[in-house]
Design a protein around this nucleic acid. Structure first.
Lengths: 301, 301
DNA sequence: ACCATCGCCGTG
DNA sequence: CACGGCGATGGT
């Protein structure tokens, strides 16, 4: 049955605590994998990841980390196949689907100003904000995960006291011992409102709107996401007006949009109003990076 | 045409800047109302609010503020009617619907440890996370808004430089001059996953699920919200398994649930699986505080 | 039981 | 400092 997976902070480990090597982390359980960068199970989610600068493309801006998945290498360490959404990669996807936090541990890395000078350091909880695939220059696909630091907004009174051990006795019937509250995040830019008005808050996929007593509700979905590493622009051509359901589906790659605005993955098409034409460049970006069905598991050999 | 509403930070005002009085704030535009605590328009949203300790029930925890709406008083300042969702209150609702940030300014208040010693201080951007109604002891209804501080997660490279004025020349076609990115947030607790599994990720309202390539997706909605001032418990009886659309509708009070589990506001009923019974106490809490149609505008006299 | 892995400690 | 071999542990 293996050891217990615990999401969130641990009782005996504080943010900033240092460890000399993997074995020390294994001992206290802050990272339970003996060699791997991702600790967790494909079905349940990842409880921790280690960032050691092993992947040249990884980016670390402190509160935002772009983390590359595992796999795709042969025994010699050379990339010789696509990464797949299995093992640790699949676990990180579960974190996104279930809004589970992941502990982030930074390992020594001279090239990373956020990394410790030596050993490993527990740097707190992050959410898996999104994931997508990229093609390396050698043509092999990798999966990447955007991690965002969870700042403890005052939600549940935190029972954790550094001074006293044996805290967190909430006594609820949770399968996990530690109380965690994570967030799904929907970004909305300055331009969102005008586009939603243009569409009268009707979803461009299903033509429905949510009527509240204070006006209609819809969400603006950026086709190429804002922020690193995508750096999509905040312009009308890069935004769709969607209901929450189709927004989630779009961000998770359940469906995408072809150049003729027909839908891929589900039936239907994107309806447009005069004055708004989604950019073909950005639609292609979404298809290539987010539309999962285009990424087939590679045949052996 | 009135003066221009600008959401987000202003070019010439930094977080922490102080002002001696309302006139000084009016002059630079950080707060454009000459007397009111809420600046903005009912149709467009609120660009700023002032917290001065005028409402005894207001709570300020720094990153989370519970702000009481305006109105309900006669000329003498005494409460003699219900507050309505008009004027500034309606404006704050728009901020929630459109994920627009609101500038928070704290005024002198000895009882508030986060308030400045004198005058007014610009304390940065907050999101309107939720709103609900409460009944005062005298029986009159008030509207309350939970504001959460926006921490600048690294999304768009910030063009704002304190040193140089005249920054932010993004040159995009936005009706606003300042680039802002706000987030709608969906909390998900440690218990959410088990309940969603119990319902096989089917929405308890519409019986649909969102199938991704990596598993089904649903959201857990707390009936009485977690966190101050509601402090709902993180237990199964206080959670519903919903699709994103119905989650938004539930949180915005578009519908609520009667004791017999029939829906109010929309047709249908909550389906339950054996082993899960929503708490009647919490359903009543939601009806009383979130289900807007129970709150009728009071007749004159 | 087998497998995969952002380690670890040697040599050049 | 690069590279290669050894290698333990949890996941499948």
């Amino acid at each position: 049955m293996a050891t217990e997976i615990i999401f969130g902070h641990l009782e005996d480990v504080s943010v900033g605590d240092s460890f000399v090597n993997y074995k020390a982390m294994n001992k206290v359980g802050v990272h339970r994998s003996s060699m791997g960068g991702i600790s967790g199970r494909a079905k349940d989610g990842a409880d921790s990841v280690v960032i050691s600068g092993g992947y040249e493309n990884d980016s670390d801006q402190g509160d935002v980390i772009v983390y590359t998945g595992q796999g795709g290498r042969n025994k010699g360490g050379k990339h010789d196949k696509d990464q797949t959404l299995t093992l640790g990669n699949a676990a990180l996807v579960q974190n996104l689907l279930n809004a589970q936090p992941v502990r982030v541990i930074r390992g020594e890395d001279r090239k990373n100003s956020f990394a410790p000078a030596s050993g490993y350091r527990y740097d707190g909880l992050y959410r898996v904000e999104s994931y997508w695939s990229e093609k390396r220059v050698d043509g092999f696909a990798i999966w990447r995960f955007r991690l965002e630091q969870l700042v403890a907004t005052n939600t549940i009174p935190q029972p954790i006291k550094k001074s006293s051990k044996k805290a967190i006795p909430l006594g609820n019937p949770s399968p996990e011992r530690v109380e965690t509250t994570v967030q799904r995040v929907v970004r909305d830019s300055a331009l969102s409102k005008s586009l939603k008005l243009h569409y009268q808050h009707l979803c461009q996929v299903c033509d429905t709107t949510i009527e509240t007593n204070s006006g209609p509700y819809a969400e603006a979905a950026h086709i190429t996401p804002l922020g690193a590493p995508h750096n999509g622009p905040d312009i009308w051509e890069n935004i769709l007006c969607l209901c929450p359901n189709h927004h989630v589906m779009f961000d998770l790659g359940v469906f995408s949009v072809a150049d003729d605005l027909s839908l891929l993955g589900i039936t239907g098409l994107i309806t447009t109003e005069e004055g708004h034409a989604p950019s073909l460049v950005h639609l292609e970006y979404h298809r290539n990076h987010y539309y999962k069905k285009l990424i087939q598991p590679l045949d052996k050999g």
